[in-house]
Design a protein around this nucleic acid. Structure first.
Length: 699
DNA sequence: GAGCACTGC
């Protein structure tokens, strides 16, 4: 094994950690921080009385890094070195170094908030700013204060925000460890291209024709653009004169590609053949492609963001941050010196790009996180003033409180209820955990478990359709239709059909369902069942209803339970047509998503009331996954809406306005513009989109 | 009749 840069710094690192409870480690790519920090501390006896734990934002990372460390220490994985991810705990009583996902550590904190099992907590890849890691950083700041004598906290970060993280942790020391990347030459465009597609195409072909061997990695924003570019590249490469340059294989790479096609990028190319990989952000951190020497960076990424004032998500194309741009460039220098072609001028990088990516906590609905923090019941913590590295806006926190109040997870004073306490134990969005609670009373737990599990995997169930496939009218004619009652019912029926085949893999394939997604649903359902049995403190019949030989005509109980769980996600049909208005403070005019199986009645009318799983502006506002409910179930919710008092919910500690002023975070301008667009007028989003499309050369 | 970047408990 080649020497990792970090090894030379061992004395310095240990000395700093011994003197300080919290240390920020800036470890550049290839520094070896993920595998070496834990081993250094292990050698120095930090794992003698308690364990060393290392978090990762992704499951694969937790597994592969643990495997490497076990190998380096010459031990069996699962013994001295182990890992824990959802559905898989490979640790034993002998485990001294434990790798896990940040979500698993949050679950462990729920049981033991002091984390006494651990002597060292390392939050790795904190610069990615995942929602879970951000919450953990807040919790660790508190824990480091409480457990001064026997806890060490290490945060790994990126160069650009090391000082910020250090300031957050009371000016703790920052150690910088160089990486082992080869130099990457950065080449900027003179101006922004009028079409990213054409510009990427031209740059890629130039590289292919002129540059020595080495694979090309192109960062695009989505599946559509990737498919277009792949086909253009194929045409162009084919038209090149035979023998004028080496062969090329063009490979798409994005999340909705079936796994067997994704792994193609890990196969080495045939000799004297160049690979051109056209990828989404998945290649930025999640997947590392070996052999890349040239990177083409469009400078854009598709990002999902939540607008707390409308309760709506939007998927926007935004400029990447400097951290992301550098991460992308770094992908070219893993095996030898490389080149990165940035399709934007250096001035745009310097003046317009944010230093770091907007943290997920400022782009998400926070109901689940707020419920989680409330359920920890930390005496010294006030959620609205919770010490986050980048606090979410008070508007976002108040939105979360409103949601939680409407589904009975907190009372009118903002205190967690016994229902809320149980909900927090379920690894689900609050709307679904509330549905499960209610289903327990209505005797439809088996159905509710299935719906919750199916929605947890929903996007991975149906394989990506390419352009040609999309044209087929009814791709899955054999799948049930939810009796027209809605998508939740359809998802339930699909699982029940599969259940009846004894989980036959072939059945999934025949019906165009992703096998991995369905297996995941089965695992989630099992996990949820176990937690529900624990909460109910008694035996529950959790068998799928097909197994019980029962049939449901109208799924009345289930839909009633959904209506309670989705109290904050209700919509009322507008008079005389099939548009809806959401119920709540700022009613939004929305449509049923065209992919829905919800059916209109004989008069062509949709049901008067529906619940929806999610609002998404793409850019027109749609309700995705809807289910019909009845007006009399909705009435209690409307009455509760009338009693809602945000001032009291926030703890009534001061005027809400004042809080608002004090809690406004430094929202980057770009995001403010985008969310403001969703907020007040559709035309603004449309305009933004048109500008982008124009740039891409579509118009 | 329109579209969905990526994670995770």
């Amino acid at each position: 094994m080649a020497t990792l840069p970090i090894v030379q710094y061992e004395e310095k690192i240990i000395e700093t950690i011994e003197r300080n409870p919290v240390v920020v480690v800036i470890g550049e790519t290839g520094s070896g921080k993920s595998t070496q920090l834990s081993q250094m501390l292990y050698r120095r006896g930090y794992a003698d009385s308690a364990r060393i734990v290392v978090t990762q934002p992704r499951r694969v990372a937790a597994v592969t890094v643990a495997r490497r460390v076990a190998q380096e220490l010459g031990v069996q994985l699962g013994e001295e070195v182990g890992y824990a991810i959802r559905f898989e705990d490979r640790t034993s009583h002998r485990t001294r170094i434990k790798y896990l996902t940040d979500g698993v550590l949050l679950r462990e904190s729920l049981v033991n908030p002091e984390l006494n099992e651990y002597s060292v907590v390392i939050l790795d890849e904190a610069h990615e700013r995942s929602l879970n890691t951000d919450i953990l950083m807040g919790l660790m700041k508190r824990l480091a204060k409480i457990r001064t004598s026997n806890l060490k906290v290490l945060i790994t970060s990126a160069t650009l925000d090391g000082n910020k993280v250090s300031n957050f942790f009371r000016d703790c020391p920052v150690l910088t460890i160089p990486g082992k990347l080869y130099p990457v030459e950065i080449l900027y465009s003179k101006e922004r291209p009028s079409s990213y597609l054409e510009s990427s195409l031209k740059t890629a072909i130039d590289i292919h024709v002129r540059e020595p061997e080495g694979d090309v990695l192109i960062f695009m924003t989505g599946q559509d653009d990737i498919e277009k570019l792949v086909s253009k590249l194929e045409d162009k490469v084919r038209s090149l004169e035979e023998g004028s340059c080496m062969d090329a294989i063009i490979l798409p790479l994005h999340g909705s590609l079936p796994p067997e096609l994704q792994v193609r990028v890990f196969n080495p190319p045939p000799p004297s053949c160049r690979r051109i990989i056209v990828a989404t952000n998945i290649a930025e951190t999640s997947l590392t492609v070996d052999g890349v020497v040239y990177v083409i960076d469009s400078g854009y990424v598709k990002q999902r963001q939540y607008n707390p004032s409308t309760g709506m998500y939007s998927l926007d194309i935004v400029q990447i941050s400097k951290v992301q741009a550098n991460q992308r460039a770094g992908r070219a220098g893993r095996t030898r010196p490389g080149k990165c072609y940035r399709l934007y001028p250096s001035q745009v990088y310097n003046d317009e790009f944010l230093d770091v990516t907007v943290p997920e906590i400022q782009r998400s609905s926070l109901a689940g996180s707020v419920l989680y923090l409330k359920s920890l019941d930390l005496p010294d913590i006030d959620i609205l003033k919770f010490d986050f590295l980048d606090p979410p806006s008070s508007e976002s926190l108040q939105d979360a409180l409103k949601q939680l109040y409407l589904i009975d997870a907190i009372d009118e004073n903002g205190a967690i209820t016994s229902i809320g306490q149980k909900m927090a134990e379920l690894p689900l969005e609050p709307s679904l955990s509330r549905t499960l609670m209610e289903a327990n009373d209505y005797g439809c737990i088996p159905e509710a478990l299935t719906v919750a599990a199916m929605l947890s995997a929903e996007t991975t169930l149906l394989p990506a359709r390419s352009k040609t496939e999309k044209k087929r009218k009814h791709p899955e004619p054999n799948l049930p239709d939810g009796f027209g009652l809605g998508d939740h019912i359809q998802l339930l029926q699909i699982f029940e059909c599969w259940d009846q085949t004894d989980y036959d893999i072939g059945w999934c394939k025949d019906n165009g369902l992703q096998v991995r997604g369905m297996l995941f649903v089965r695992d989630v359902r099992k996990q949820l069942s176990q937690i529900m049995q624990k909460i109910a403190k008694g035996p529950l019949d959790i068998r799928s209803s097909r197994r019980r030989g029962e049939s449901r005509q109208d799924y009345r109980n289930l839909r009633k339970a959904l209506c309670v769980g989705y109290a904050n996600q209700l919509a009322e049909r507008k008079m005389h047509h099939n548009g809806y208005r959401t119920l709540g403070f700022q009613g939004q005019v929305v449509q049923v998503h065209p992919s829905s199986v919800l059916k209109a009645d004989d008069l062509g009318k949709f049901p008067d009331y529906v619940v929806y799983h999610e609002l998404i502006a793409t850019p027109r506002p749609y309700m995705r996954n809807v289910c019909s409910v009845e007006m009399r179930w909705v009435v209690p919710v409307i009455n509760k809406l009338k009693t809602l008092d945000v001032y009291k919910l926030s703890g009534g500690t001061g005027p809400v306005e004042e809080e608002t002023e004090r809690n406004v975070p430094d929202l980057p301008k770009k995001i403010v513009e985008v969310t403001a667009g969703v907020d007040d007028s559709e035309s603004r989003i449309q305009a933004a989109r048109e500008r982008f499309l124009a740039r891409k050369g579509k118009k």
